[in-house]
C-alpha cells in the first residue's frame, strides 16, 4: 500500500517536473515571431523607487502604437509609481497627438493594477509565505483567471526588473504555461546599478524568463544565460 502511494507520488512529481522542464525557455527556440502584427499587449511591473524609474525609462523608448494597451502592475501602497506611470502616459500622448481610433476610443490605452507585496521591508520570515501566497493569488487572478473569464489575454509580453515581488508575477505566468494556457513572453532587465553581481531577483529568474538582459557585460562573465547590449536606461 505504502509502496503504491509512494510510487504514485513519485510519478506525479516526475510528471510535474517534466512539464516544468518542457516549458522552460530554450535558447535554441526561434526567437522571432515571423508574422507581422499590428499591436502587442504589454504589461510592466513597477517595483518602486529606482526599479520604477528604470522600467519607465525602458518603456518611454517604445512606440506606444505598437505596444497597446499597456498594463502597469504596481505594489499595494506604492502610489508614487502609479503617478509616474500616468505622467509617462501623458507625456507620450502629448508627444504624438494621434486621432483617436475606434479602438482607443472604446478602450483606455492603459490600465493600472495593484498586487499585494510578497514581503514588506522588515516583515518576519514566518509570515512571508502567507503574504507571498496572497500576492500570488492576486497575480493568478489577473494573469490566468480574468483572461479565462473575459477572453481578453493578460498580455503578450511582460517586462520585469525587480525587486522580489516581480518573481510572483513570473510564477503566476508559469502556472498559465503549466496548464498550456496563453501566456506572455517574459523579459527581465537587470538594473543599471548592477555592475559585477546580479541581484537576488536576477539570479532567481535567470533560467525562467524568455530574455534575460543585463546592462554591464561583467555580469555574464560566468558564461551563463543572458545578453548585454550596453546601457538601456
Amino acid at each position: 500500500m505504502v509502496l503504491i502511494a509512494f510510487a504514485t507520488v513519485a510519478i506525479l512529481l516526475i510528471c510535474i517536473l517534466a512539464r516544468i522542464y518542457s516549458i522552460l525557455p530554450r535558447s535554441t527556440k526561434t526567437r522571432h515571431s515571423h508574422h507581422s502584427r499590428d499591436s502587442c499587449r504589454l504589461a510592466v511591473f513597477l517595483g518602486s523607487g529606482g526599479h520604477t524609474s528604470e522600467a519607465l525609462s525602458l518603456l518611454s523608448s517604445l512606440d506606444f502604437s505598437r505596444y497597446s494597451p499597456r498594463t502597469y502592475i504596481c505594489s499595494a501602497g506604492d502610489l508614487l509609481s502609479a503617478k509616474k506611470a500616468v505622467a509617462v502616459e501623458a507625456a507620450k500622448a502629448a508627444e504624438s497627438p494621434s486621432h483617436p481610433t475606434q479602438e482607443t476610443r472604446l478602450n483606455k490605452p492603459y490600465s493600472i493594477i495593484t498586487i499585494p507585496r510578497a514581503r514588506r521591508v522588515h516583515q518576519s520570515l514566518l509570515t512571508t509565505p502567507l503574504s507571498a501566497a496572497r500576492s500570488l493569488a492576486v497575480c493568478l487572478y489577473y494573469v490566468m483567471l480574468l483572461p479565462l473569464i473575459s477572453g481578453e489575454p493578460f498580455a503578450d509580453v511582460v517586462l520585469l526588473n525587480g525587486p522580489g515581488t516581480c518573481c510572483i508575477v513570473c510564477l503566476a505566468i508559469y502556472f498559465s504555461r503549466f496548464f498550456g494556457l496563453p501566456s506572455p513572453k517574459i523579459i527581465y532587465v537587470e538594473s543599471f546599478a548592477r555592475v559585477r553581481s546580479l541581484s537576488l531577483t536576477g539570479k532567481l529568474l535567470r533560467l525562467f524568463v524568455d530574455r534575460f538582459i543585463v546592462q554591464w557585460p561583467d555580469l555574464l562573465r560566468d558564461q551563463g544565460r543572458g545578453e548585454c547590449r550596453g546601457w538601456l536606461v
Binding site: 515571431s33 523608448s61 505596444y67 509580453v157 546601457w231 536606461v233
Partner: peptide
Amino acid sequence: FPQFNGSRFREMLDEEMGFA
C-alpha cells in the same frame, strides 16, 4: 556621459515581438 539611447531596448523588444 552618453545621453539616453532608447533605440537599443526598442530594437530588442520589437525584434522579440515580431515587429519589422
